[in-house]
Structures are given as structure tokens and as C-alpha cells.
């Protein structure tokens, strides 16, 4: 077990470092920063959905809350360190409240999805109506549909004048993603993570073993929201403006598509799915012939039909095949699972 964990961490660090340093050679760092931010957002849903079995349709709400918290706190405080921390804590606290309400209320999966979606749409609608001067938090005007521009960007902690944008922002965001990825890996290896996976597999059985699943799901939900909030703050620092569209239906739907296409139940899959699909979207955005959402929908349908487990498990299988099949991923289930899946 110990050796496995060390090898896993080592592999993630090496692969992560290679990608972080290598990708700028072939792509623009401005775009890469966005891919990294969305990768982190997808990882947050990949954690709670893929490993905790919590299908949250409104992960965008926590992403948006993180972005708005960063912007509002930045305007009021000036230096970005505390706003960045708040951008993690505020969404996490909101998720803890919402999660406690849902999990202690024993809501079924469908209601959970609906409530989280509605939660994000309420924030979307409400923030869209906050145009007047009456809507201020401290010195920050919420700005209605136009959102909040002109807040302080991410800076080197303690030095408000050293703002990070362009290449440095990319490296900071990418390093943050790698750290979050390692923390998620560690969490999943811990007892808490292993029991969370047990809850995904069979909630009733785990509670009959004496575990309080409501509390555990609430905590996991809050952790996922914290990660989404951090992604939101990094997004705000990248976009230099936050608008209500962060909470929109399209944003929520895309996160789910990223996870499915990338590979649910894996750590790397959602990150990969987000990066690839966002890249596709940016490339398609340059032309006017086909609608973007149409392409996203088509990709989703094709994956559900032909690669239901997503890109990452298939890559792992390919890797196992190339290296002679000594590694375990995916192959075990192939003989009997194949017919059942189809």
C-alpha cells in the first residue's frame, strides 16, 4: 500500500511537471490557464460525483461564488491572499449548509441534482438583478448583468503591487492544480476517502456498519465546493471580470460533460475531459459554421454510446496493453463486464 502511494505520487508529480513546463512550448499560456482552471473545476465535481456518488448539477454555483468572493473581497481588502482563502472558505461553507440540508433531509439523487441546479440558477437570476447602486458589499458594487470588473488581480502574497498575469499566472494556476490533485489523491487514500467510496457503492450498508453517512457526505460536498471555489478565484484572476454567467445553466452542464467524457471515477479523467473539450470549444469558437453547444452535445452522445467509461480508463487500458498487461487498471473487468456494459 505504502509503496503504491509513493509511486502514484511520484508519477503524478513527474507527469504534472512535464505537462506544466512542456505545454507552453506548443500552446499559448493564456489559453492554458483557462484549461487549468476548468480542469480544477472538473476535478472538484469528479471528486464528489465520481468517488462520493453525489451528482451535483450546480457545481457552477460554487465556482461562481469563489470568483465573486475573490472579486468582492479583493476590492475591499486590496491584497489578494485573504480573498483567495475566502474564495475557498465561502463556497465550502455554503456547500456545508446546503449539503446538510439535503443529506440530513435524506433527499434522493434526483432531488439533490434539482436542488443544486436551482441553487445555482437562483444565484444567477439574483446577481443579474443587482445593477443599481443599492447593491454593494463594502466598496464593491455587484454590477448586475455586467458583473464586477477592475478588482485587484492575484498578487505575490504580501506584495500587492506584484500582480500575476500572463505566464506567471499560468504557472501559479498549474501548480495549484497539481497540488489540489495530490491532495485529492491523498484524501482518497485516507480512511475518509475509502469510506466515501464505500458510500458511493452502498449507502445503506455503510450506515449499517456504524458510519454517519450524512455527515460524511456533507463534508465531502464542502471539500468539492472549496476546490471549485479556488478554481473560481483563479478564473476571476484570469478573466479580470466576474459576471453572473458563471452561475449559468451552460456552465453547470459543461462541467458534467467534462467528467463523463474524461472518465468518471478517475482523478485524471475529469481534468483531461475539461482541458480537451475547452480546447475544442476555443478552436470551434473561431468559426461561425457550427454552434458550440451542438458539438458538445454530440461529443457527449458519442461518448455515452461508444466510450461510456470515458477517455482516462481507456488510456489506462491502452497503457496496460503497451506495457505488457502487468498493471491492473480496467482489464480486470473486461471479460465479464463487457457484455453487461453494452
Amino acid at each position: 500500500m505504502q509503496g503504491d502511494a509513493r509511486r502514484d505520487t511520484g508519477l503524478a508529480v513527474i507527469l504534472g511537471a512535464v505537462l506544466i513546463l512542456g505545454l507552453p512550448l506548443i500552446a499559448d499560456t493564456n489559453m492554458l490557464t483557462l484549461l487549468v482552471v476548468y480542469g480544477m473545476l472538473a476535478l472538484s465535481l469528479g471528486l464528489i460525483w465520481g468517488f462520493g456518488g453525489i451528482l451535483c448539477f450546480g457545481q457552477a454555483a460554487f465556482f461562481g461564488l469563489g470568483a465573486y468572493t475573490f472579486a468582492i473581497a479583493g476590492i475591499n481588502i486590496g491584497e489578494s491572499t485573504l480573498p483567495l482563502i475566502l474564495a475557498v472558505l465561502v463556497p465550502a461553507a455554503a456547500a456545508a449548509l446546503l449539503g446538510a440540508f439535503m443529506f440530513y433531509g435524506r433527499l434522493g439523487d434526483v432531488y439533490l441534482a434539482v436542488i443544486t441546479l436551482v441553487f445555482s440558477l437562483i444565484l444567477f437570476r439574483w446577481l443579474s438583478t443587482t445593477a443599481g447602486p443599492a447593491y454593494v458589499i463594502g466598496n464593491a458594487r455587484l454590477g448586475g448583468y455586467n458583473g464586477i470588473p477592475g478588482f485587484p488581480l492575484l498578487n505575490v502574497p504580501g506584495y500587492p503591487r506584484w500582480e500575476l498575469w500572463g505566464d506567471p499566472l499560468y504557472y501559479v494556476a498549474a501548480a495549484a492544480l497539481l497540488i489540489v490533485f495530490l491532495l485529492v489523491s491523498w484524501l482518497l487514500r485516507s480512511s475518509f476517502g475509502r469510506i466515501a467510496i464505500g458510500i458511493r457503492e452502498n449507502e445503506e450498508r455503510v450506515s449499517l456498519l456504524g458510519y454517519d453517512i450524512r455527515a460524511r457526505k456533507t463534508v465531502l460536498f464542502a471539500i468539492g465546493a472549496g476546490i471549485a471555489g479556488l478554481a473560481g478565484a483563479l478564473f476571476a484572476a484570469w478573466a479580470e471580470v466576474v459576471t453572473p454567467s458563471l452561475f449559468g445553466l451552460q456552465q453547470s452542464a459543461e462541467i458534467i460533460i467534462w467528467c463523463i467524457v474524461g472518465g468518471l471515477g478517475t482523478r485524471f479523467g475529469p481534468v483531461l475531459g475539461a482541458a480537451v473539450l475547452t480546447w475544442v470549444k476555443i478552436v470551434l469558437g473561431g468559426q461561425g459554421a457550427i454552434d458550440n453547444m451542438l458539438v458538445m452535445g454530440l461529443i457527449l452522445v458519442l461518448f455515452v454510446l461508444f466510450l461510456p467509461r470515458g477517455i482516462a480508463p481507456e488510456l489506462a487500458r491502452l497503457w496496460g496493453w503497451v506495457t505488457g498487461g502487468t498493471r491492473r487498471p480496467a482489464r480486470r473487468r473486461a471479460p465479464r463486464g463487457g457484455t453487461a456494459d453494452g
Binding site: I195, I197, R200, E201, E204, R205, L208, L209, G210
Partner: peptide, 30 residues
Amino acid sequence: PHRIAALGVGIKMQVSSVMDGLSVQENIWM
């Protein structure tokens, strides 16, 4: 149920109920 189980009561329901996606070792470890 979780509070009763936590007292030291082992429960097995009629329909076999286990964590399907996990190994035997993982199940018992939990």
C-alpha cells in the same frame, strides 16, 4: 441505524448488501 451499529451491533439484511465495486478486503476493512 448507524448509531445502533456503532454501539457494537452487527447487522445483515435479507438481501445481500455489500459494496459491489470494492474488493472483499476493502469491504471487510471498512
